[in-house]
Design a protein around this nucleic acid. Structure first.
Length: 144
DNA sequence: GCCAACGTTGGC
DNA sequence: GCCAACGTTGGC
């Protein structure tokens, strides 16, 4: 199983919004990603992979864990290319559990063991990889 | 295929 | 609101 980190601006779509949807038995299509590196990460995801939900701009913290419930498929909001193909893809997600204690970007940056985290190194990438050791440490910092 | 100009992201 | 980082576009 692989681990990931996905960003969302909470005033657009927050972890609480995802929890509410999940409780209603719905899934969330992670649409709107328009960056090839981020898209490729989503194409590499498998059902059952887990991902941190990071609130960008407002909060700047990891607030919970979600899971991938559908592999990459055409983004319903994606435009077509000249050949009529859907260029952009996305996965579907559901919430797993919130962090008892959100882990802030400032804390992450202050942690030596997380200096290689893609969130830090590739700050503009909205869907990034998290290693097994980074995942475990971040869960611990989040109170799980 | 190079590179300058421009647009977007996201932290501060 | 500013700006650094970086991806994309388009002229040559």
């Amino acid at each position: 199983m692989a681990y990931w980190l996905m960003k969302s601006e909470p005033d657009v779509f927050s972890f609480d919004d995802l929890v509410a949807k999940t409780e209603r038995g719905e899934v969330e299509e992670w649409h709107g990603v328009r960056n090839y590196a981020a898209r490729n990460n989503m194409k590499a995801m498998a059902v059952g992979d887990q991902a941190f939900f990071y609130h960008s701009n407002i909060g700047k913290e990891i607030v919970g864990i979600m899971t991938i419930v559908a592999p990459a498929h055409p983004d319903s909001t994606g435009e077509l290319n000249a050949k009529g193909e859907v260029v952009w893809e996305c996965v579907d997600v559901q919430s797993v559990r919130p962090f008892p204690r959100p882990v802030t970007l400032a804390e992450i940056k202050a942690t030596e063991a997380l200096s290689e985290l893609e969130l830090v190194k590739l700050s503009r990438l909205s869907v990034s990889k998290v290693s097994d050791t980074e995942w475990k440490l971040l869960c611990k910092m989040g109170g799980l």
